[in-house]
Design a protein around this nucleic acid. Sequence first.
DNA 1: TATGAATGAGGCTTCATTCAT
DNA 2: AATGAATGAAGCCTCATTCAT
Lengths: 183, 183, 183, 183
Amino acid sequence: MPRVIDHDKQRADLLARSFTLFAERGYGEVTMRALSRELGLSTGSLYHYFEGKPALFRQLLLARVEQDVADAEAEVPTDLDAAGRMSALLGYVQARIDYLRQLVLMSLDYYQLHPEDRPFLAQVSRRYRAALVDRLGLPSAELGPLLYSFVLGMVVHRTLDPESVDLPTHVAFLQQFAHALND
Amino acid sequence: MPRVIDHDKQRADLLARSFTLFAERGYGEVTMRALSRELGLSTGSLYHYFEGKPALFRQLLLARVEQDVADAEAEVPTDLDAAGRMSALLGYVQARIDYLRQLVLMSLDYYQLHPEDRPFLAQVSRRYRAALVDRLGLPSAELGPLLYSFVLGMVVHRTLDPESVDLPTHVAFLQQFAHALND
Amino acid sequence: MPRVIDHDKQRADLLARSFTLFAERGYGEVTMRALSRELGLSTGSLYHYFEGKPALFRQLLLARVEQDVADAEAEVPTDLDAAGRMSALLGYVQARIDYLRQLVLMSLDYYQLHPEDRPFLAQVSRRYRAALVDRLGLPSAELGPLLYSFVLGMVVHRTLDPESVDLPTHVAFLQQFAHALND
Amino acid sequence: MPRVIDHDKQRADLLARSFTLFAERGYGEVTMRALSRELGLSTGSLYHYFEGKPALFRQLLLARVEQDVADAEAEVPTDLDAAGRMSALLGYVQARIDYLRQLVLMSLDYYQLHPEDRPFLAQVSRRYRAALVDRLGLPSAELGPLLYSFVLGMVVHRTLDPESVDLPTHVAFLQQFAHALND
DNA sequence: TATGAATGAGGCTTCATTCAT
DNA sequence: AATGAATGAAGCCTCATTCAT
């Protein structure tokens, strides 16, 4: 009888455990050897689960979007008013700011290393943005991209110069800004 | 005596010509061999001018800040009112958006590859931000970082998903936003 | 009891279906994984039928000689005169030229990869040659090897430079040549 | 001042010394590591001289054709009559039979491993054949390919079953055969 | 009997940097 | 001052075979 292992489940588990390494070193600096060591299997086995490093990363990203979007939806109830939803969403972002930072950084690293796969990153980015827009039910269609840009900006700013970005200030500004728009 | 000047001039010239390659491929994907070929000298000579790849890149970045800040100051006259200065500055950003994009991307690539040199990137980032803040003479001290974050965000958003970022919309928003703040 | 028969029958079937893959890619480029996928079983099962890749290939070759020799004997009736037998044999070769080409190529590939098993290839080669010699009943004992060399040569020449080998010309030459020898 | 080394000469020397290894193990079984060890330099250096393993092999083959054709022309004087030229050429082949064997084998190995480069092998093959045809000044245009096929065949036959190929017999046959054609 | 996950050595190739010339 | 050959560790990936289930 075949060894009974849920291949997909195992893969999902490997992806989840991979994230840490990518977060610490960035896509390009994570070697398949290091990854397999971290995951406790041989390089050969790693290649049983994933076709290669780019494929692994793509699946990692896809798994993350799904999870993140689900989390965001759980944290931003639809029965709140606009201000409340914005508030909840900002809470979500603020609580995960460093996670998002790592996600953006590794994506940009992948962007540089795999120019042929940029459309994929665009799709992922749109998925995040769509979730944000949908959830907020923003009055103006243009605000989604703006807000999304701003979050990306916070994240990059925090990367380049962590000490100069005061998260509460940024978030407070966004909240105030949203208020103004709702009037 | 003129030797030194020539040497520096030559170095500045090499840096300027290096930018294209870094912009096209990112810091990590530019090899010293490719760089020397592009610049028309041997790798040995390249090492006469620069101590190594990281040193070269640092100098490239420093040269860029100087130039960019000077350009910005030239384009944003101090005798304009707040709204005018903001307008001029946004014009500056809008005209150079892809250049800034490349600059940010290569810096983030360097960030991943040289964790030991992150403080340097923080300094460079602060220099840019300070120029922006100084030039705008923003009423609130907190607005500088916010604005700077937003510009970084536009740039990254444009990278990940070029088709979804409408530059005029973004800029118009910023302008309108600045207006509101001045009242 | 029927178990064993079935097993052998199954193995013969697997060998027959393996040939295509070896023909397309050559011995060295066929992986056991690819083979098992092509055959519709797991690698583990493949190893139930054959001890390993070299063993599998040996059996493949043996199965082929048997079949080919039988085919040749069927196509070259013993009641023809020398010229007729030669004619029939050339027809056989001409009709199967690309099959023979593949067979020779994969054998040479195996030759390079398994130096320890070269005697086996020699045996197989002799078996083919003996069939040719026996069937033709050549007047001179030396002609067999010559003819056999020539067929091998056609096949390799066709491999290296397909466009330059005109099969009918080659065959016509052989026929004419045989004629001369019979006089 | 640059290290004064004749890059092309060095490359030619490396190719000449590479041949032995390819002859012993075949194209596929020669690793770049083994090659660099044999040649007394690092893998990195090997890649300074050649773009990669296939490129190296191509150049090896090209160098060989040139040399071999030159040798053949030196050994087959044009002032001989047809029979004499044939005789001289057969002497050339007979003396180098194992060298030619190795050359053919490594080429066929390359053929299997680099399907995309088969046209190159066709060119090389034609070059050899053209030299043979030109030198012999064969009465019939069709004899060139036939003779060439036969030589290839001898070589492969000798590979598969060395003990069964008596070189003098093969050569004598060819000579006798050529005689017949000249009448 | 059948499965397929697991192994791990080893393949080709890259690259920042050095140093003899 | 300038050259570019040389280094060698390390990257990604492959594959015949085994063995727990």
